[in-house]
């Protein structure tokens, strides 16, 4: 474990807590893409298949359980919870996310670290996570103004993988046989997708103005 990865995990956790706070405090999920949340639940479920087979550390196991439970809770909330469900922008959240699932799975079958069930699903989860934010960014552009908590949620979500990039650079230089190029390349794509959001988020922070993405 290194400071970059720990900071990355904490930033990821903060993003989830901010989203839970938004949904709980405002009893609304307006501006949040259910499709992105479903993709994230799938990412965690397929990435942590080794939850019961490979014990890395208490921290690792606890965080995996937290990520799986919170992502499922958010999807459940947005689908089942009467009050929250009504605020869901159903007509705006129309990204065909099953295409992302199909594409990432096809890529995972072709490009993986080892042609085993677990490794194919691990690679699938890595590719899917890179593009999972797309429905959310599309929804953001369509819904125009963004409430603060949603903006912060997306900011922390993007920042966590940027910290992981630093973690991989650090591990590359400090560990003899470290090569996670699938996660690294995918992480660069993932962070790149946030580039324009980060730009407008920075502008809104600098000008102390509301976060506006150009339609």
């Amino acid at each position: 474990m290194n400071i970059f990865r720990f900071a990355g995990d904490m930033t990821h956790l903060i993003s989830i807590l901010v989203l839970l706070l938004k949904i709980y405090a405002t009893k609304s999920c307006s501006g949040i893409s259910l499709k992105t949340q479903e993709l994230y639940a799938l990412v965690f479920l397929t990435r942590y298949l080794d939850l019961f087979t490979d014990f890395i550390s208490v921290y690792n196991t606890v965080m995996k359980l937290v990520f799986i439970a919170s992502s499922l809770a958010i999807v459940w909330c947005m689908r089942m919870h009467g009050l929250v469900k009504r605020s869901y922008d159903k007509e705006l959240d129309t990204f065909r996310h099953y295409l992302l699932v199909a594409g990432c799975f096809a890529l995972a079958v072709l490009v993986n670290e080892k042609f085993t069930f677990q490794e194919i699903f691990w690679a699938f989860s890595i590719y899917l996570e890179a593009v999972a934010i797309l429905p959310q960014l599309v929804l953001l552009q369509r819904s125009g103004n963004v409430d603060n908590l949603t903006g912060q949620y997306i900011f922390f979500l993007g920042a966590y993988r940027a910290l992981y990039l630093l973690n991989w650079i650090y591990r590359y230089f400090t560990e003899v046989r470290f090569s996670r190029w699938i996660a690294c390349v995918s992480g660069i794509v993932q962070t790149g997708l946030y580039a324009d959001f980060f730009y407008y988020y920075f502008l809104s922070w600098k000008n102390n103005a509301k976060l506006q993405l150009p339609a």
Binding site: R5, D9, H12, R47, D50, D54, I56, N60, M63, K64, F67, E113, K114, E119, W122, Y164, N167, R180, A183
Partner: peptide, 10 residues
């Protein structure tokens, strides 16, 4: 052969 060690990252 190239043994894939367990993924230690989240």
């Amino acid at each position: 052969s190239h043994v894939v060690e367990a993924h230690d990252e989240l």
